[in-house]
């Protein structure tokens, strides 16, 4: 039953990475959307019928774009990762910022 233990070992790592990237990045994206809506005001936010809705806030728009930039960065990392793996390289986070190294 060694395979089973090995599989569980792999599985929880995949789950962890999946939660951080697969649920975390979409959450950041959602924050961006919310922030943009706050920035746009008016029809973008839920408000009582008949009123014009809240005013826009410039800070919201800015925050929204920051969030989207973060998500784009995450996707760029993902693509780099796919390409690097294809060429026998790996992404290393030992310097905190990612670098491409040879796979060992």
């Amino acid at each position: 039953m060694h395979n089973l233990t090995l599989a569980f070992e792999g599985a929880w790592k995949v789950l962890l990475a999946g939660l951080i990237l697969g649920a975390g990045l979409p959450a950041v994206f959602a924050l961006g959307i919310r922030s943009l809506a706050y920035g746009a005001g008016g029809e973008a936010e839920v408000h009582e019928a008949g009123t014009t809705g809240p005013r826009g806030h410039a800070i919201g728009t800015a925050g929204g774009y920051v969030a989207f930039a973060l998500v784009l960065l995450g996707i760029a990392l993902g693509i780099t990762f796919v390409v690097a793996t294809g060429f026998g390289k790996a992404l290393s986070f030992e310097h905190i910022y990612p670098t491409i190294v040879d796979k060992h």
């Binding site: 789950l15 999946g18 939660l19 697969g22 649920a23 979409p26 959450a27 994206f29 959602a30 924050l31 959307i33 919310r34 943009l36 809506a37 746009a40 029809e43 973008a44 936010e45 839920v46």
Partner: peptide, 21 residues
């Protein structure tokens, strides 16, 4: 599990934002 968590979080965060937006 990942998708369910992601979906739930997204809906929580975007509560109060108009649907079309």
């Amino acid at each position: 599990v990942v998708a369910a968590v992601g979906t739930w979080v997204i809906y929580r965060i975007t509560l109060g934002v108009a649907k079309r937006f």
